[in-house]
Design a protein around this nucleic acid. Structure first.
Lengths: 123, 123
DNA sequence: GCTTGACCTGGAGTCCGCTCCAGGTGGCAT
DNA sequence: ATGCCACCTGGAGCGGACTCCAGGTCAAGC
């Protein structure tokens, strides 16, 4: 009996990750996504790990990390376990930036709410 | 005795608002900033109100409002007090989006921290 | 009276992150 | 077996938000 490792078609990955197909191809082209496997016809077949990695990318992207830095993270990840301390450092720095973003947004939100209150007061 | 209304040179506004001079000119060109006054030599002289308005723009920009929508807000503001309900509506919608951004960032931050913990655990 | 530097203008260029296109292949449902 | 649809590739194009440039003008301090 053969094992059938779960494998995802492009359409499934789009569905699963929320990235467009064009974005997936783009990420592969620039090296954010390691060379994805292909079937006989040359069509992409993504693995479970690819999905996981794309989840990480989505998280980094959605917290405003520029592609250049995601690329650095990707390279560290490919380079092997000895880069884990570097990866921790990178993520910790990013975490601090995210924290800063949140604080900043909270501050701005106060400003906006004040403005709304002011507008209400002059009606 | 004459009043000297406080007026700001471009350099002062850059200092005060954190926008670059190019950005200020750009904002004026596209109509985000109403025609700024000039001295005899044609140089910009910003008023207190300009500074206040720029504060609002900075807030909207830093919370991710696209320029097209800031422009809409600018037009409402210019149109007079009868647009205040519309302005409130616009800001409330934006406030909700900002709230969403914050929630999203907080979620992502959890993911990043988990990842960091995981990396720590395998060291 | 001359240099310096803060300004001015219109318009071109840049950067980022995709997004779209043309032209082509392969495989599956009817 | 045929039609259709999901894919493929390389490369061009796009939208947003600036940013830079060339060439020119004034104003003031030395």
């Amino acid at each position: 009996m053969l094992f059938r490792v779960s494998v995802y078609t492009p359409a499934e990955v789009v569905e699963e990750t929320g990235f467009t197909l064009d974005t997936l191809r783009y990420y592969e082209k620039i090296g954010l996504l390691e060379r994805v496997e292909r079937n006989a016809a040359g069509q992409r077949r993504f693995t479970e790990q690819d999905i996981g990695w794309l989840g990480m990318l989505r998280c980094l992207r959605d917290t405003g990390m520029p592609i250049a830095q995601m690329l650095r993270f990707a390279e560290l990840t490919r380079a092997g376990d000895h880069t884990i301390p570097d990866r921790i450092k990178l993520l910790e720095e990013h975490d601090r930036r995210v924290e800063g973003q949140i604080d900043n947004l909270q501050e701005r939100k106060r400003y906006i709410r004040n403005k709304i209150s002011y507008y209400r007061s002059v009606l």
